[in-house]
Design a protein around this nucleic acid. Sequence first.
DNA 1: TAGTGGTCTAGACCACAAA
DNA 2: TTGTGGTCTAGACCACTAT
Lengths: 235, 235
Amino acid sequence: MTVKQRELAGKILRRIESGEFSETNRLPTEDQLIEQYGVSRYCVRGAIAVLAEAGEVFPVRGSGVFVREERDGIYMPISTSYGIAADFPDRKVVSQVRELALTRTDEKLAKRMRCDVDAPVWRVVRLRCVDDLPVSYETAWYLKEYVPFLNEDIASGSLYRYMRDDLGLRFGFTDKVIHVDWLGAEAARQLGLKEGDPAICIEDDAFLSNGRLFNASYNLYHYRNARFYSMASMR
Amino acid sequence: MTVKQRELAGKILRRIESGEFSETNRLPTEDQLIEQYGVSRYCVRGAIAVLAEAGEVFPVRGSGVFVREERDGIYMPISTSYGIAADFPDRKVVSQVRELALTRTDEKLAKRMRCDVDAPVWRVVRLRCVDDLPVSYETAWYLKEYVPFLNEDIASGSLYRYMRDDLGLRFGFTDKVIHVDWLGAEAARQLGLKEGDPAICIEDDAFLSNGRLFNASYNLYHYRNARFYSMASMR
DNA sequence: TAGTGGTCTAGACCACAAA
DNA sequence: TTGTGGTCTAGACCACTAT
């Protein structure tokens, strides 16, 4: 969805959260929103789609757009790709860098990253915490071809923001594979769990907008502190 | 996405799979597709969005729509909601009914299903197999209010198709929560694993298009036979 | 029957990639 | 500079809900 539609969705969300619609549980009609914000129906429908995907509202044809009841608990959206920091704007998100080294791809990694063997890559291992709770232990590789420089200071912040704003990279899409894995000794120690404990594992391949892979990662999630949420339309 | 857009996406996908674009790895331009199929740009872009979400193509602004390399392995899309049968049209999907009973909600289930305590519900326990491999052990509850009749014959087929085509229910959306759980004795026996083995657990709440919950389920997935796939745009 | 969201068209202009 | 996909508008008609 576009910036304009997301901004409009934010404005509408603030009205929802203020309780403006809590009597009827219903948003203004599309025509009213067009009128109120001076935009086209395309934008209004885009904004409503953003809110629907986020699980905030559900549109019913012929009837209106209804506000959904609040969900309890804190979950990570499984489909977002801008990192934990963007998912939890209100929370204290800390990335502790456990390793940062410039190495080279072995055969297996080169195959996964669609590059030559011995290609220079940054290897970054981080423990991610939300509100002081360890949430994930992430091992990531970044092709030096696209990320020429990296240091601990940058890696302890939002790497994606650095790459986008400072390096000018434009992201395209990510592939994720989700499965169960078991914690090794070091991962368990970092997450405060026992070796051999199970974890949700998300393997993530991230591509630039030109279709080139620039980042692969292997992320182990704390089985208690991390839960995932996904909302899907059934049409 | 709409039926028309999905059908158009299917036509384009068949051309991709036939190898028609394998030289350039590039789809015809939007204008060419408009011309070829006699539809508007809206429909063409919708069809391309379907293919992009499915991980088949990626559009690059200013350049074209490119065919993605094939992915290896069999993964379940994490966001679809029409059941395993729809996800694997080419495979042998079998549902073995292990329990089917008309019971009543206890306090906890009533809270989850947003209904009264002691409301009549069908409880259905099924083992789902794909190509003779056990994939998931699913416990589901259906409110009798919306599903007045059910039997083993229906439950061993596609329940969703039955509800949609025979009962005339219209689906809206589902909420999923994904986390790790451990197999109990019975689930382990059914899946051919050991008690205490970990499993990906997806708790699924399904709503009708009018926003009413009609189905809750608790699904345990075989840690080896079931892997999930998710593709996300990073814009 | 009136009102609402869903689909579709035609056309404009913008941002970006590649020549 | 040209051609591509991305955003946005205006307007039409359809499918469905509610009365």
